[in-house]
Design a protein around this nucleic acid. Structure first.
Lengths: 228, 228
DNA sequence: TCAAAAGTGTTTGTACTACACCCATGC
DNA sequence: GCATGGGTGTAGTACAAACACTTTTGA
């Protein structure tokens, strides 16, 4: 038992794929490294796990420094263990993804990075380390999970129109969905509630505003989208 | 960079939920601990990750010592990070699950444990550490993944009858499935191939023997089972 | 009064469910 | 012959896809 901590351990870090949705585009938050290795390349935000912190605490600490944001939707993705994934030594990375509404937060550059920026998922730059792989896993998870779980609401304002929700789904899934069938399906599943309020100041007919049904007990929603 | 390994890191371990199927029952392999903490209690097999090993290598090393088995189906489940999950100190556990055919292997007691035993998933003993949680996650993953992915074949012999496969699904999902609808669905999906061979020496009509279709390219299988 | 987006409804086809029937084998 | 499990077929139904129509707003 006394020998318990004498083994040399791999280092342990978290890396995060932070998704944001704005202007009908899905984006990811990247940092530009200001030190070697991979100086001036783009990376996912991340950092080492301290002895006293859980993964989520580590994630929250890192993102609160850089974005000033709290109460994040966080979900563990996968743990990456290739022995050569970090040139500095053996580092295990536990990947998380997060969904945020960029309109609610202001990005603040942190001490480790000289630049923080949103990139559209369709226009991603080259990523350092094995972060391309982590990003790919996150997109895949997001696309499959949104088919049966109410994820999208984290990315939208508290009140949103059916059109906005519909476009979000089309954007994330990168496919066309019939708006009428989508509307019926998502209403039947009780994911959302029509507030009765109308959005004003729009060009055409004023759409209803919906809110997420936080009291949803049973989830019987399932979109059948063919993944290509 | 020189300070890279001076931070104190949490220890890193893997824990495995090894599923086996025999006598129409789904079982899990457990070890009886021969040292404190949790002496004489049952645990999932596991061990610490060495600097030079990947997770899968760690899993394989541990299981080959205790079971003499190779070429395992292994899938990463989740990483458990509660700060108090191990009384000896901070230990992160990356959980994997494995599917094996017990008939193919012989269990060998290892150096760390004084007993190795299969337990039916419906008759599990109290588990040490947070292993009950890990086990629950594994069952849940197995139940949801088998609905759309060809997992069951890892648990069966190379040649099996439709009945055997059907019973395996009913056992894992803990529900009744109409055998005729099941048969049609799984055949339509091209998961399995009828070898034309019949099983002999049975009491009633000789059933066809099937094999897994290893050349399966596109997976359009999906069982619709209501999870209760 | 026209264009564009939003709300609501209907038809059609497919796929799943719930069955029934026949076949082969051992006793 | 009969009991038992194995193989195959079919009618009914529910749901999803495809599509059309009406309503509301700003210009």
């Amino acid at each position: 038992m006394s020998a318990f901590h004498t083994y040399k351990n791999p280092s342990l870090a978290v890396d995060m794929v932070v998704f944001g949705y704005q202007d009908n585009k899905l984006s990811v938050l990247l940092l530009n490294r200001n030190e070697e290795p991979f100086k001036n390349e783009w990376t996912l935000p991340g950092g080492f796990v301290r002895m006293e912190d859980t993964f989520e605490e580590t994630c929250t600490n890192i993102l609160s420094k850089k974005l000033g944001l709290t109460k994040l939707y966080l979900e563990q993705l996968y743990s990456f263990d290739e022995t050569d994934r970090d040139p500095r030594g053996r580092v295990i990375s536990v990947a998380y993804y997060s969904l945020i509404n960029p309109a609610k937060f202001k990005i603040v550059a942190g001490s480790m990075a000289n630049d923080v920026k949103w990139f559209e998922v369709k226009k991603m730059p080259k990523l350092a380390f094995d972060h391309k792989k982590i990003f790919a896993a996150a997109i895949k998870r997001l696309q499959s999970k949104i088919l049966y779980f109410p994820l999208g609401f984290e990315l939208l304002d508290d009140l949103f129109t059916m059109s906005e929700l519909h476009q979000l789904y089309e954007c994330i899934l990168d496919t066309e969905i019939d708006r009428r069938n989508f509307s019926r399906k998502i209403l039947d599943a009780d994911f959302i509630i029509n507030t009765g309020i109308k959005r004003e100041g729009v060009k055409n007919r004023q759409p209803d505003l919906f809110k997420f049904n936080k009291k949803l007990k049973q989830n019987n929603f399932h979109l059948n989208i063919q993944q290509q």
